[in-house]
């Protein structure tokens, strides 16, 4: 029963959705502070290469994860400085980050006398439980059979939700994203809050990036993440800026990414649908969701931070 296509598809969707959860929750935290970061794609790639390299050098997955978190945070500091201190266009700055990060990750993967590209990972994330309860029908593979980062992603979504809506810091964060001038007069240091949360979001994006070469396909290949960073930006809206909903949105897109493999196994006529057409599904889904969710004033009802993307000038208060 655990070998049925449905179970296998859900398990695969969970795997493909996990890096999306990290990146999406990260971007939610960033956007809640009022900063739009279109650099997620580049940040994920930089986190991926940093994480893979650290594990490759040390043999330690823990060090790989730490490296991806630090690389993601440090890389997004560029965007924080440009958008918070220099107050330039967040859209262009984010795109710049993505272009730079894409080039940087590719370059680092290929440069030097012993390039990383094509190298297998020295260690990889595997199911933490094998046999026993992981073999139980249905709930075994669905609940117990995953690698540790799948559970970390659940905890991350839960923790981010608690932080945003149940803590004082989270309240300050949301205030900064809604109305920075009022937050400032209530004694919140707007710039500081924004810096911290852009970097926290970047760290999560870096971790999400590292999941690809350390868990999904344990080897270094050029651009291991596909378009995941762009998808994550769309998922933020689909999740209406709420970390819990990001969990489900990410798994939905994980399933969409997996569908082409599942249809192959179903035989004719399903297997005749060209892979290139199926590859469009996540993007078509994102566009439909965008039109349905953000048209008119609906984005505000969904919970879009009011000050999202708008530079804050303290002097103008």
């Amino acid at each position: 029963m655990n070998d049925s296509q449905l179970i296998l598809t859900i398990v695969a969707a969970v795997g493909l959705g996990t890096p999306l959860i990290f990146a999406t929750v990260g971007e939610i935290i960033t956007e809640r502070a009022g900063i739009l970061n279109l650099g997620v794609q580049g940040t994920m790639l930089v986190g991926a290469v940093a994480g893979f390299w650290a594990t490759f050098q040390s043999g330690s997955l823990t060090l790989g994860i730490v490296a991806s978190l630090l690389a993601g945070a440090a890389f997004s500091l560029i965007h924080a400085f440009a958008s918070i201190t220099l107050r330039v266009s967040q859209i262009v700055s984010g795109l710049a980050l993505t272009i730079f990060g894409t080039g940087l990750a590719s370059f680092l993967g290929k440069a030097g006398s012993d390039p990383l590209v094509g190298e297998p990972a020295r260690d990889q994330f595997d199911s933490i439980i094998s046999g026993g309860i992981a073999d139980w029908p249905i709930i075994g593979p669905l609940v117990f059979g995953h690698d540790i980062l799948v559970y970390v992603a659940w905890i991350a979504a839960g923790a981010a939700s608690y932080y945003l809506f149940r803590t004082r810091m989270g309240l300050s964060l949301r205030a900064v994203g809604e109305d920075p001038a009022s937050a400032e007069s209530a004694g919140v240091n707007v710039a500081w809050v924004r810096y911290v949360h852009v970097m926290a979001g970047g760290a999560l994006a870096g971790l999400g990036g590292a999941y690809y070469p350390l868990a999904l396909v344990p080897t270094w290949q050029d651009n291991p993440i596909g378009a995941a960073g762009w998808i994550a930006i769309a998922l933020v809206i689909l999740a209406s800026w709420r970390p819990w909903r990001a969990l489900f949105a990410a798994y939905l897109f994980g399933a969409a990414a997996r569908i082409q493999f599942t249809l192959q196994t179903l035989g004719e006529p399903w297997s005749n649908i060209p892979a290139t057409i199926l590859a469009m599904i996540p993007f078509v889904l994102a566009i439909i969701a965008m039109i349905a969710l953000t048209s008119g004033k609906r984005a505000r009802f969904l919970g879009a931070p009011a000050a999202l993307g708008i530079p804050y000038f303290r002097e103008q208060r």
Binding site: F81, S89, S93, A96, L97, T98, I99, F100, G103, S106
Partner: peptide, 18 residues
């Protein structure tokens, strides 16, 4: 690696927008 070009272009954009 030819990707140095993408890197340079991205860096140019970062500095130009800054």
């Amino acid at each position: 690696p030819p990707e140095i070009v993408t890197m340079l272009q991205g860096a140019i954009l970062i500095f130009a927008v800054g």
